[in-house]
Simulated scan of single mutants.
Amino acid sequence: MNPSRRLGVVVNPIKFDDLADVKEQIAKVCADHGWGEPVFVETTEEDPGVGQAHEALEAGVDIVCPLGGDGTVRAVATALVGTDTPMGLLPGGTGNLLARNLDLPVEKIGDALDVVLTGTDRRIDVGLVTLFPDSKSAEPLKGDDPPTEEDPRRDDEEVFLVMTGIGVDAEVMANTNEKVKGVLGWPAYVFAGISRMFTRGFMVELSTGGGDPQIQHARSVIVGNCGKLQGNVELMPDAKLDDGILDGVILAPKGAFGWGAVAADLASRHRRGHRQIVRMTSPAIRVTTGAPVETQVDGDPKGEQYGLSTRILPKALVVRVR
């Protein structure tokens, strides 16, 4: 019993019909485990969780838990990167993708809290992404100040924990109806995806820092820190959260037959293989396009961009696991 230990919870209030009941449930589980009264900080439209996570840290909590969607998880992680304070994962959104990739409970808050309060700490990698809102920003930077050990991120870099992508995957995120998602859960993305399968695609130049850039037509380019999607789909089966490497995949199917082949490849966990799926690994992956294309970061739509640049920050975040 250690009532001096406290949990910080950064909660997105719009995710819950009865937030008071959720808070009461969390407080009871904390008390049952001998922890003190948890500190709750609610996100706002202006701040999705970064400032709230810092507020929780200033209150002296021992662990900070995002309670919302994957966007709340990303915001809290942004505040915790480079610290020794662990992040605990509570299910509050549709995807809960980081928790799925860590094989943590994603159905019941109580089960997840048991892990948070009794589990062990694990250091995982963090992805950093710079978006290119115009063609000029997509040009390689020269002479910019490198990150320092005290501040490992540049001002133009955003944190991602799961995947960032450009193309069909981002179009699906941007066009999924929130009401439908609230009723159906993750299958709502499938319905949104069907309507995006027959878009024309785009030309992409991809560089991994070694050799000549690869130029080809694509429907989607995804860079991941881990590889599991909803429905237990392994998009990047070799991706690991602590290997210091990013995994990338270019999807370039043509028509319904091509998408069917891609689906068969994913369903067979890549035993069949397909020439319209190109894979790569590198600590840094840069993607540029000749025209603006819809983009997402950990499921958050970012609008049309001229590409993105990603790199890995090895073992920069502590996460509470089983």
Rank of each mutant, 00 (worst) to 15 (best):
G165K: 02
F198E: 13
A170Y: 00
S137I: 06
V168H: 02
L229A: 12
A174R: 11
L251D: 07
D145P: 01
L251Q: 06
W186N: 04
D212K: 14
D155S: 11
V190T: 15
G182C: 07
G143C: 03
T130M: 07
I215W: 03
T208C: 14
A170R: 01
P213T: 10
P146K: 03
T164F: 02
L246F: 11
S207A: 14
G227V: 03
D247E: 15
A192H: 05
Q230V: 14
A138F: 06
P237I: 12
D134R: 02
V172T: 06
M236K: 02
E139A: 12
I222W: 02
E149Q: 09
A174I: 09
M163P: 04
R200S: 12
R219W: 01
G227H: 01
L184R: 08
A239P: 01
N232E: 14
P187Q: 10
G224P: 02
T130P: 00
G185V: 08
F160D: 06
A170P: 00
N232K: 10
D156W: 09
E157M: 02
I250G: 10
M163D: 05
D169W: 05
S137M: 07
V249P: 04
M236Q: 09
A218N: 03
L229K: 02
V190L: 15
K181I: 04
A170F: 01
A239V: 09
R154W: 03
D242E: 10
L229M: 13
R196E: 14
I222Q: 01
V183Q: 10
K136D: 15
L235E: 02
V190S: 13
D144I: 13
Q216R: 15
K181R: 15
E205K: 15
E157L: 05
L184Q: 08
